[in-house]
Design a protein around this nucleic acid. Structure first.
Lengths: 230, 230
DNA sequence: TACCAAAGGTGCACTCCCTGCAAACTTGCA
DNA sequence: TGCAAGTTTGCAGGGAGTGCACCTTTGGTA
């Protein structure tokens, strides 16, 4: 959605065939239709990731992925909406809610870290296949274009995150004028996303397998304090 | 550089005709050749910006810009390398050096703010025509795709910025192991870029005319302190 | 002043991403 | 078994971006 096409406008144009979004495998009793879809999806994703891992993002064409995944290009676009889509997973719509949930769940941590953690868990949750998730990560981290899209992803939802934070401020009975709170919230969100980006880049793909969890987060916290201590 | 083309790889492929980069108007005594180039460049940029302001980014095609700017599409790409290029200005290569200079120049301010300020000045410096610069800004801010590219721009050069910061740490006679310093620097850069992004978004296009200078920066500083005070 | 080599601009053909549309094919179900 | 809804696919086409060969303009020179 960056370049071609006449009347585009963004991921919204991706009207996935079935109803329930992006499952990893297709729950057993969901009808042949749904299972087939999920399977096809999985095959294509796998093919795409392997291909890119092997040849690099821009030496892989959509046609290649389709050949390997045994679908027509048209179907590919029906599923993922764009070449990037197959690597970045479903567009934010679904994910934002997850972030909100995670954020509200832990009201103890300082805003910035609670937020960062929430974004993280949203980024990694609902991915049943750890190996696949890691491979995907590796691809995204290693491809500036995709990384950039990831960030865009975050940027698009900055507003919702800001609202989330403002709400928390309100819950903390803070009484500054709305504009003040919003400004502070915006900055907090910016910082949180920065933390996410940094941690994401720190963590090498050949890690222990899990995703950068509390450990990395604590470390980044130390760093922040150090930076601001002077 | 996001979508099309076979063997691309990035802005690098933009081999501008002349030598000296992107002047706004062409210094009087530079030879007819250079002056013409600069003039053509200016005309195209102006046309592009006006067009987008009027119709929105993705309702403007490169062909339209070329028609308005009176050059062939091929020439357009020779000049700017991509549709985005005409709005984002010259790719980082030139700009990074400017950031480095600005950063080194003020060693008094805390790292994060010195860095943010430096990026700002690099972003806006060397643009003789304030009105044009503002219009460009307006376009970029109002177009997610372009905004995302801006960020990519920053991301690509994060490493160089990190080195810059590490060097400063060294100058401050800090003795932590290299890895430590690098990690801290990376985080600092991340924060600085976050500040830049936030300030950029805060400042509305219909501002007083200048670019978000020290004022906004000071404000963001207050915010940061507030956020970390708890 | 006429001429020439280099620099720059263009047209052309082609690759690639992506979309709308309608035909063909599957599946779920009565 | 038959049909309606759900899916896949082919086709045609638009828009970005590139390599290449050719033509025009400049800058300088004899």
């Amino acid at each position: 959605m960056t370049t071609a096409g006449a009347g585009k406008g963004g991921n919204p144009g991706v009207e996935e065939p079935g109803a329930e979004g992006h499952d990893g495998e297709g729950h057993p009793g969901e009808g042949l239709r749904a299972r087939k879809r999920a399977a096809a999806r999985a095959v294509i994703e796998r093919a795409a990731i392997d291909l890119v891992l092997e040849r690099g993002y821009d030496r892989v064409t959509v046609d290649m992925i389709c050949a390997a995944g045994m679908v027509s290009p048209r179907t590919f676009f029906n599923y993922f909406g764009s070449k990037e889509g197959v690597f970045l997973g479903p567009p934010p719509a679904d994910a934002t809610e997850a972030v909100a949930r995670a954020f509200r769940a832990d009201s103890a941590a300082p805003v910035v870290f609670a937020l960062a953690k929430a974004v993280f868990s949203a980024l990694f949750e609902g991915q049943p296949d750890a190996e696949l998730a890691r491979a995907r990560m590796q691809v995204v981290m290693g491809t500036p274009e995709l990384l950039s899209k990831q960030n865009e992803w975050m940027a698009v939802h900055e507003n919702q995150l800001v609202n989330l934070v403002v709400t928390r401020y309100r819950d903390q009975l803070r009484t500054e004028p709305a504009a003040e709170l919003a400004a502070e919230a915006r900055m907090a969100v910016g910082l949180a996303l920065a933390v996410v980006r940094v941690v994401l880049q720190e963590s090498e793909p050949e890690d222990d397998g899990g995703w950068p969890g509390a450990a990395a987060m604590d470390r980044s916290r130390e760093l922040l304090e150090k930076i601001f201590a002077r």
